[in-house]
Design a binder for these strands. Structure first.
Length: 498
RNA sequence: GGCGGCAUACCCAAGUGGCAAGGGAGCGGUCUGCAAAACCGUUAUUCACCGGUUCAAGUCCGGUUGCCGCCUCCA
């Protein structure tokens, strides 16, 4: 069975059949560029990055578009605060966004269009809606009349009557129905302004995605993603605009990721309990964050606590630890050909697990991107591989055993990479991890190296009292030593304060 | 008030009707000058609770309780 995805529109898992065989047209709502991104954005970015990677892994030719909202009230407000042009604000936070995404190993989409580069397309769509009598001008604004669109509410699963009854909607004298939403708003003095058939103004928020989706992916496309919060009103309104204008289905599969909680509390700016990505990555490695996010299904809420994040850090260290052992004790040997039965004889269980991983991985991911299960399979192979390696003690592996170990490690890494995990050489990872963690200990790498050298001398003289004293001294700073045949390694232990 | 989701071991977590994945932590062991890492063993006759359907239910249906999200800018 092939890929099945949970479609918010139909509220069930469906077989994924792209419009055009072998090709996927994929749109994700990007950010409004007025501030730094927080870990909620990071979750969304990681989730859709993995979906993108998996579609590529399946062999699809994917056209992946993620927009920037570069004109809106918040950007204008921020520009006024800074005494800058709105474009300068947008540019600054687009640059910051790219830095953050690169730090998270997020693959770039094929296109990252700006809303302000597509004003003319937006105007065309609004004109269509005006011509059909679905949009109306009121004062300087143009609104979409929700009652004129039959399917309004089909994505978020509510009816117009219910929503009006709920009536937490601000009453606006300009609107025929309080749920009508703005397509074009007249600019106030001093605001950025574009010409339009309805006078000078700027676009409403929702219309940009209809326009850019249309421009880059066509009138109907396969996947539209975003955070759960965008279901209503943003995506509901996108559907209304696009389907009213073009009279074809807008999107086939709607995918929405769950939210981030901090210590079981909703992350929000008003509570002040949010972390921006760049600060978070000063403490935690990006692959640990990625493992953490992917350990839970993308539609569920995920709870950030120090303990949960620390668990993910240990998990990544464990996976890389095995890869490091392979590099040390089973170095690449290209000159020997070993038949598969000989490999299997080395360790049938490991051999079978290795061969079973591709299918197990696919089964998990095909089921609405069950990354948690896929990761579970990776850990199972890692543990079995490590067990195999341990049978040799500190000895190097040779011949068939080395080849089996390498192949198992290569399989593990190949599939982890589809999740954006284990993308580095193990030495690189551990070096990055040490650099990241050393700051919080108050030590420098040089100081640690010096103490390790002193301890090494003491150990050579069998002065174990002194060597243990040094170990304890470092341990108080959370620096833990590991003696190996290749020398003493160090790492920074988990922080004890919460 | 309306709509939707969730409840699995000490913690995180997967589980699409057929003996409850995986990770972390703890405990015992192997290894080690001592450690750490790693490995081995161990930790849910049971899936919030009550009924029902079924040969069979964590999984389906109904109800109860508890938690959460959306309905307003928000990933």
């Amino acid at each position: 069975m092939g890929l099945r995805v949970y479609n918010t529109l139909t509220k069930r898992k469906e077989e994924f059949i792209p419009l055009q065989p072998g090709k996927v047209r994929f749109y994700v709502c990007g950010i409004t560029v007025y501030d730094f991104c927080h870990i909620g954005h990071a979750r969304s970015a990681i989730v859709f990055d993995v979906i993108y990677r998996y579609l590529l892994h399946l062999g699809y030719e994917v056209t992946y578009v993620r927009n920037f909202t570069d004109i809106d009230d918040k950007i204008i407000r921020r520009a006024n605060e800074l005494g800058a042009d709105y474009r300068a604000v947008a540019e600054r936070f687009i640059a910051a966004f790219h830095e953050d995404m690169d730090a998270l190993d997020i693959l770039r989409p094929n296109a990252e269009p700006l809303a302000t580069d597509h004003i003319s397309t937006m105007i065309e769509i609004i004109e269509k809606l005006m011509a059909k009598g679905i949009a109306y001008q009121s004062g300087a604004d143009v609104y979409f009349e929700v009652e004129r669109f039959n399917g309004y509410g089909k994505l978020s699963g509510r009816s117009l009557e219910e929503m009006v009854a709920g009536a937490r909607v601000e009453v606006d004298v300009n609107k025929r129905n309080p749920l009508d939403f703005v397509l074009w708003k007249g600019s106030k003095p001093g605001e950025p302004v574009w010409d339009s058939p309805w006078g000078p103004g700027r676009p409403g928020w929702h219309i940009e995605c209809s326009a850019m989706g249309r421009c880059y992916l066509g009138e109907t496309f396969d996947i539209h993603g975003g955070g759960k919060d965008l279901i209503f009103p943003h995506h509901e309104n996108e559907i209304a605009q696009s389907e009213a204008a073009f009279e074809v289905p807008f999107v086939r599969y709607w995918l929405h990721n769950g939210f981030v909680n901090i210590n079981n509390q909703k992350m929000s700016k008003s509570l002040g309990n949010f972390f921006i990505i760049r600060d978070f990555l000063k403490e935690v490695h990006s692959e640990a964050l990625r493992l953490f996010v992917l350990s839970k299904h993308y539609r569920s809420p995920v709870d950030f606590t120090d303990e949960n994040v620390a668990e993910a850090e240990r998990g990544v260290e464990k996976l890389y630890g095995t890869l490091a052992v392979i590099k040390e004790r089973a170095p690449v040997t290209t000159d020997i050909q070993v038949a598969d039965p000989a490999l299997q004889k080395q360790d049938p269980e490991l051999y079978d697990l290795m061969l079973a991983l591709p299918e197990a991985f696919k089964d998990a991911m095909d089921n609405d991107f069950n990354t948690a299960l896929a990761i579970g399979h990776c850990f199972t192979l890692q543990r079995r591989l490590q067990r195999f390696l341990d049978q040799f003690g500190q000895k190097r592996l040779k011949g068939a055993s080395a080849i089996l170990a390498q192949r198992a490690a290569a399989t593990l890494q190949e599939y982890s990479k589809v999740l954006g995990l284990l993308t580095r050489d193990p030495e690189v990872f551990f070096e990055e991890q040490r650099k990241l963690k050393i700051h919080s200990t108050g030590m420098t790498e040089e100081e640690v190296s010096r103490l390790i050298e002193l301890r090494h001398q003491a150990r050579l003289e069998k002065n174990f009292a002194e060597s243990d004293r040094i170990r304890n001294e470092l341990e108080k700073k959370r620096i833990l030593l590991e003696d190996t045949p290749q020398g003493t390694r160090w790492r920074v232990g988990a922080s004890t304060e919460s």
